[in-house]
Design a protein around this nucleic acid. Structure first.
Length: 469
RNA sequence: GGUACCAUAGCCAAGUGGUAAGGCAUGGGUCUGCAAAACCCUGAUCCCCAGUUCAAAUCUGGGUGGUACCUCCA
């Protein structure tokens, strides 16, 4: 598989450190609020990457953290008059509601920063022992970026350029040796939660938790590190700096970054206030549509968000669900011929879709093209099911292939649900009315069924009932 | 000021040297009492200019337009 590596800015063949095994980490949410569509994109992207690697036979250890201590957490907790811990507990619970809805698999480990203090302190100690840190009295323990020769290798920023540029930027240089230096440990301020450390009471800096949790759960060198493009600098750059300073070896081989979700061509972000939480969107569009929508574009291309685009995605996804439902209906009702030639055509389509799906996903996780492969199979399945010349076994295999491939992408389909007896009876009455050519009555009953939230549709040999959306 | 990315049909979106996937929408058709679904048909000289090449949406140079990062941000 090829992955675009931010470190080198090339698509590279993915080679894990240990054959057959993948160690990957993705930056998780800061749990002070519901997460929005922009936040959801990396969750879905890296969940899909993990699912795909597993599909290809890798044994994947995947860590995604919860950031449960930082300025935003403290401020929000104060506003609400609760502790930071209570706030975190609440929004971790809420995270799971949306994450489960989006069919994001639970990662192997989901550590919380506040529960990783030993690892954090251990990492700072190691950096200190190696001479990378210094203390600013009354402020915190800082990392000295000038001590690391290759600082900037991820973002490809040069230290002197960082200093020179920025326009509006007002960096606080006070006490720092270099403008790019950053706190790894912040000394306690009044009213803030704190933990004991060799340097005094305080709390971890922003970047240190990821470095520490990675070391604790995955080791000194990992295969893949993921996150949004805005984390390239400074967050991931500083993670590299810290971990390599402490561990003395390469931190991570492949950095993978997703592009943003835009609204009217502008980045969706909390500071611009143009964001939509998943919780809000799901009132109108189901979770599986949201996930499908995210995967409809390549992860390194920006995607635009709008109501119309979600609506189109919903119709589009419905096409796949319809196909599987149709296949199921035909399998349970139809008498399929089992014509060898028809089977061959469908078999070819199954194979082509499967092979092409893998080729596309192997090419830097091109889910957009992979979905196209599913649609191409869908068309053939619809045709085959309609003609009813294929064998039940082949149609079943085709249907299962669709389920398999959508499953790799974590896309859940809307399949049969139990139909209440009352509805079935009404549908039977309508069928009788139709037989008696009393179409007025038939249509009236259909409306009645519609009003109860179901749709009855005539198909060759009878009718079928579906839940209306 | 520095650093990246992007510009493909009405809309969304792949393709990144050999004369343009897929989805949504539109129009026509098949099927149907009607409808739904499905199937078939329908649509792009790939932002502009110049260059390289037998061959460019795809490479190079120059424009124009847009976005992001350099500060909390996925």
């Amino acid at each position: 598989m090829k992955l675009y590596n931010t470190l080198t800015r090339y698509k590279e063949d993915f080679k894990p450190i240990e054959e057959g095994k993948v160690k990957m980490y993705a930056c998780g949410p800061t749990v002070y609020n519901y997460f929005h569509l922009g936040n959801a994109r990396p969750f879905v992207t890296f969940d899909t990457l993990a699912r795909y690697l597993e599909y290809r036979g890798y044994d994947v250890t995947f860590v995604q953290n919860f950031t449960d201590i930082d300025d935003k957490m403290i401020n929000r907790a104060n506003e609400e008059g609760i502790t930071v811990e209570q706030l975190a507990d609440r929004f971790i619970k809420e995270y799971y509601v949306d994450a489960d809805g989006l069919n994001i698999k639970r990662q192997t480990f989901q550590p919380r920063a506040t529960q990783s203090m030993k690892a954090i302190i251990g990492l700072i100690k190691a950096m200190e022992a190696n001479g990378y840190t210094y203390i600013i009295e009354g402020d915190g323990v800082y990392y000295d970026v000038s001590k690391k020769a290759d600082y900037g290798k991820l973002s490809h920023y040069k230290l002197d350029e960082l200093e020179a540029g920025g326009g509006e930027r007002k960096a606080s240089y006070e006490g720092k040796k270099n403008p790019g230096d950053f706190a790894v440990w912040k000394f306690k301020k009044e009213g803030e939660p704190s933990w004991g450390s060799p340097w005094g009471e305080g709390r971890p800096g922003w970047h240190i938790e990821c470095s520490a949790m990675i070391k604790q759960y995955l080791g000194d060198t990992i295969d893949i590190h993921g996150g949004g493009q805005d984390l390239i600098f400074p967050h991931h750059e500083n993670e590299i700096a810290q971990s390599e300073a402490a561990n003395g070896c390469t931190f991570c081989n492949y950095f993978v970054h997703n592009a943003f979700v835009n609204i009217d061509g502008e980045k969706m972000s909390k500071s611009l206030g143009n964001f939509f939480t998943i919780r809000d969107i799901v009132k109108k569009y189901p979770y599986n549509v949201i996930r499908f929508f995210i995967l409809l574009g390549h992860y390194r291309s920006p995607i635009n968000f709008s109501d119309e685009l979600l609506a189109a995605a919903q119709t589009s996804l419905g096409r796949i669900s319809n196909c599987v439902r149709n296949a199921n209906f035909v399998l349970s009702n139809g008498n399929l011929a089992g014509d060898a030639e028809a089977d061959n055509v469908l078999e070819d389509a199954i194979k082509a879709a499967g092979d092409s799906f893998i080729a596309h996903m192997d090419d830097d996780l091109n889910s957009a093209d992979a979905i196209t492969d599913i649609f191409n199979l869908v068309r053939q399945v619809n045709s085959s099911a309609q003609e009813a010349k294929v064998s039940a076994a082949m149609l079943t295999a085709a249907r299962d292939k669709i389920l398999e491939l959508t499953g790799v992408l974590g896309i859940l389909l809307d399949l049969e649900e139990a139909i209440p007896e009352e509805i079935t009876e009404l549908a039977n009455k309508r069928a009788e009315a139709k037989k008696a050519k009393d179409y007025a009555l038939a249509d009236q009953i259909r409306d009645e069924i519609q009003a109860k939230g179901y749709a009855v549709k005539d198909v060759p040999g009878g009718f079928k009932i579906e839940k209306a959306n």
